[in-house]
C-alpha cells in the first residue's frame, strides 16, 4: 500500500481509538494490528508527531501487572482534528464504495 495513504489511515485510527479513553502505545499498536497488517514500529512516530502538534498529551502510569505505560490523552484540538479526519474518511469511503458498486453492477449487467 502507498506509504502516504497508510500514514493517513493510521493517524485516523489512533485518534479514533483514543476518543473515548486514554490508551498506551502498545495497546494502540495491538488494536490496530488486530485489524490489518502494519509495520508496528510506524505507530510510534505518528504518536510522537501528534503529541508535538498538540493533539495529545502524555502521562506515565505504573501498572500492577506488567511494565509502566505511557498513556496518550486527546486534547481539545485533538478531538477537533479527529472529527475532521473522520469526515474526510467518510467522504472518501463513500466515493470508493460507489465506484465498487458501479463496477460490480456493470460486470453483472
Amino acid at each position: 500500500m502507498n506509504v502516504q495513504f497508510k500514514k493517513g489511515v493510521l493517524t485516523l485510527c489512533v485518534l479514533v481509538l483514543t476518543l473515548k479513553k486514554d490508551r498506551y502505545g502498545y495497546e494502540l499498536v495491538d488494536h490496530i494490528s488486530e485489524k490489518f497488517l502494519i509495520a508496528e514500529g510506524t505507530i510510534y512516530p505518528i504518536l510522537r508527531r501528534l503529541t508535538k502538534d498538540g493533539y495529545f498529551t502524555t502521562y506515565l502510569s505504573e501498572s500492577k501487572e506488567g511494565p509502566p505505560r505511557k498513556y496518550y490523552q486527546l486534547t481539545e484540538a485533538g478531538k477537533l482534528y479527529a472529527e475532521e479526519l473522520i469526515g474526510e474518511w467518510e467522504t472518501f469511503n463513500k466515493g470508493v464504495d460507489q465506484l465498487i458498486k458501479e463496477g460490480l453492477d456493470h460486470d453483472e449487467g
Partner: peptide, 21 residues
Amino acid sequence: EHFQHGFHKGRTEEEMVRTLG
C-alpha cells in the same frame, strides 16, 4: 516499552522485531 509489553504478553524477540518493521 513496546518490547517490555510484548514480552509480558509472551511474544518472542524475533517475532516482535519482525513485526516492528
